[in-house]
């Protein structure tokens, strides 16, 4: 009896099951993206214009850059809701050094450094003092933005060095903006990091069972610390892009972004309880959200209504697969 079962255990069969896994959530998102495209082009003749589409990407690229490391953090059973506040603090510090006459690259460096420092600070509080990350980052969310307000007050900084506007307004080639190209680049980097490296594997292991991961010799706290810092760094990068695009800094910059970023991650099929999710899913969710908001913009739907639609979309899309299985089970039972 033993031997028959053992023989079927071949490594070849792993690939079929992996394919099946991919077919579920990500293909579902592709389908919805396609439907939204069809609907949008039907509703508005301006939708398929390349320049319009290119403009639409500015709606999401900055948030999406943070959604990538955020997905890894959530997979590892942690969360960071201070990201928008990190953007604000990082933008404020960039504004201050720009006012002192720093060159473009120094300003950008300060932005990334500030982000990294904020992320590291979150990570140290979580790992060293064993405070749940949601508590820590609720606290630092107020802390970081509060520092911005102290530093800037109701001041607005506009004196950025020449050339700084390229990050948020420049184009690399034809309709492809620097922001879009940067997002595509980081999407590949994070895909590689999560799905191809030991670092990524540890992320899944920790998210599913931190104790067993620790017992397997993984340095769990160090890993979490790196993830928080990574989220901080990418928030710094997003801050550079946003500040450059707006051409100004206010302490209230990027208000409420943390929720749209987490929405992107969850819509992308990342379990909010940790342990599962893919970068491909997050990228698709980002595109979906971008297209929906863009389509609604073309139709002149007011902002308040848009947020309602995005909220309803999140709940519907996430619950749809659950509802379908429930329905199937019920049907199977009735038979």
């Amino acid at each position: 009896m033993d031997t028959t079962i053992k023989k079927s255990a071949t490594p070849d069969s792993m690939f079929t099951s992996k394919l099946q896994g991919l077919l579920r959530w990500e293909s579902f998102l592709v389908l919805i993206v396609f439907l939204v495209c069809v609907m949008n082009s039907y509703l508005s003749p301006y939708f398929l214009d390349p320049w319009n589409l290119s403009d639409a990407t500015f709606n999401f690229t900055e948030k999406a850059l943070i959604a990538l490391p955020m997905a890894m953090l959530i997979i590892a059973k942690e969360i960071d809701i201070s990201v928008a506040a990190i953007i604000s603090l990082s933008s404020t510090l960039m504004g201050l050094v720009a006012q002192m006459g720093a060159p473009v690259y120094a300003v950008a460096f300060v932005g990334i450094l500030a982000g990294a420092a904020c992320g590291l600070f979150n990570g140290v509080l979580v790992t060293r003092f064993k405070i749940p990350s949601i508590v820590v980052t609720i606290g630092t969310m107020s802390l970081f933005r509060g520092i911005s307000y102290i530093l800037l007050g109701d001041q607005v900084v506009r004196d950025y060095p020449d050339g700084f506007e390229f990050f948020g307004q420049g184009y690399v080639y034809w309709v492809f903006s620097f922001e879009l190209v940067l997002f595509a680049f980081f999407a590949l980097v994070f895909y590689w990091l999560l799905h191809r490296t030991t670092f990524g594997r540890y992320t899944y292991a920790i998210g599913n069972n931190p104790t067993a991961s620790y017992y397997s010799g993984i340095k769990v706290d160090k890993h979490r610390l790196i993830l928080f810092t990574l989220v901080g760094v990418m928030s710094g990068v997003a801050s550079i892009l946003l500040t450059s695009r707006l051409g100004s800094t206010r302490p209230s910059i990027a208000m409420g972004w943390e929720l749209s970023i987490i929405t992107m991650v969850v819509l992308g099929g990342v379990s909010i309880l940790g342990g599962s999710g893919t970068i491909a899913g997050v990228v698709l969710a980002v595109i979906l959200m971008g297209l929906v908001t863009f389509g609604m913009g073309l139709l002149n739907i007011p902002g308040i209504v848009m947020t309602i639609i995005v909220g309803v979309m999140l709940i519907t899309v996430v619950s749809l697969p659950v509802l379908i299985t429930l329905y199937k089970n019920k049907k199977a039972k009735a038979l």
Binding site: P11, M14, T198, Y204, N208, N209, S213, S216, I218
Partner: peptide, 24 residues
């Protein structure tokens, strides 16, 4: 780690030895 496949559980303590330049 119950949610991970068998082979990933077996390799977990020695991922670094098995990887080439951090790549699995």
């Amino acid at each position: 780690v119950l949610e991970l496949p068998i082979y990933q559980n077996v390799s977990l303590p020695q991922m670094e030895r098995l990887a080439k330049h951090g790549q699995i």
